[in-house]
Design a protein around this nucleic acid. Structure first.
Lengths: 198, 198
DNA sequence: ACTCTATGTAGACGACGACAACATGATCGG
DNA sequence: CCGATCATGTTGTCGTCGTCTACATAGAGT
């Protein structure tokens, strides 16, 4: 029951996913304020109210995109498991986050949008909490190897999350980027991270 | 020609500033998507089109708010001049930024809103560039005192800006805050900063 | 075959951003 | 002191949007 392609399984098509995909494209082109449920319906050739069957409100749509975003970020972070627990894995996780933010800037934007997070669903906040927990555990594991074991775990957590999120934003956001980043950004990013990881 | 108060100089009142003030209040309550020119007009008892005389578009209004925000941030940063150039002043600048973000979260949100920055005016980007330049200079001055003088200035700049902006965001944003911050946040922030400044 | 439910459509309503035509009152040159 | 000019505010309008309601249609399960 899934021999052909993956699409066209229903009434008109797999509208829900089509909406999500097209929405993410549109976000990249015109931003949140340029995204409209009616516009999406138009793009996909369905009636103006069709999207409401899948996302009752625009907030719901953005929320679903954010959920997809966290999932994607989670997946990207798993590559760090190749490194052994400790500073090396933390380094890999930080770089994975920063690279992901650059490669999925639309999703990254949505996840940082106050108006989206203001209406975050229970699912979304739970996912984010899980991601956060993952970092806490890895930091603890690193400290257990002796790395910076004398530092308050809460302080270490704050520092690492701030540095990682901050680097992702600064190197991704156009306004910062124009004035902050230098051509050889990626090697500078590694150097900056290593300034802390030693 | 300016003896009395500063306000009520015209037709109905000092509408432009009233719009800005009320808009910032509304942003704190309902966010960007909850802000409307017509709503502001209603709140201030003027006709629905009156705001257009001062801000031709909603983007213009947000841009003006962002300009005011950078100005406020600039002012708050000047307190750091009390410390001598070097790591101490950098520390003061970083903490001033983070404290400002907490005390003016609406302005901080606007300055980090991709949809606002997408339409940033020449004035705004120039202001931000000036602020950025200020940091570069202070970092250079600190290095001239011998502090981390062997580190590439670009890397140092990236690191400090990322850490500062990241800390401000992580400790300000509700979603992060709920999962990242601990009760004694402010002292943890100082400890986190000092982890780098030594 | 019949029903139930998931999905899509058609139409309506109020709010909004934006524009144009018009009104009013302050300012300034004479 | 007066009339022109321009900044400011108002009324009316248009197209778009989010959202709701009533209705249509197609699969799934009995």
């Amino acid at each position: 029951m899934r021999e052909d392609k993956v699409n066209a399984p229903y009434h008109h098509g797999n509208l829900r996913q089509a909406l999500l995909d097209r929405a993410i494209e549109t976000l990249g082109e015109k931003g949140v304020e340029g995204l409209s449920l009616r516009g999406l319906a138009r793009d996909l050739g369905v009636s103006h109210a069709a999207p409401l069957r899948h996302f009752a409100t625009k907030s719901d749509l953005l929320n679903a995109i954010a959920v997809e975003g966290v999932g994607s970020l989670f997946a990207a972070s798993e590559a760090a498991d190749a490194d052994p627990p400790g500073p090396a894995r933390l380094r890999a996780m930080m770089l994975a986050y920063i690279d992901w933010a650059k490669d999925h800037s639309e999703l990254h934007h949505i996840l940082r949008n106050p108006d989206v997070m203001r209406h975050a669903s229970e699912d979304l906040t739970t996912l984010i909490a899980g991601f956060s927990e993952r970092w806490r555990e890895e930091i603890k594991a690193a400290q257990d190897t002796g790395w910076r074991s004398n530092v308050d775990p809460n302080v270490l957590f704050l520092h690492i999350v701030s540095l990682t999120a901050g680097t992702a934003i600064v190197t991704t956001e156009e306004v910062y980027q124009r004035r902050v980043a230098t051509p050889e950004t990626r090697s500078n990013i590694e150097a900056s991270i290593d300034l802390f990881l030693r």
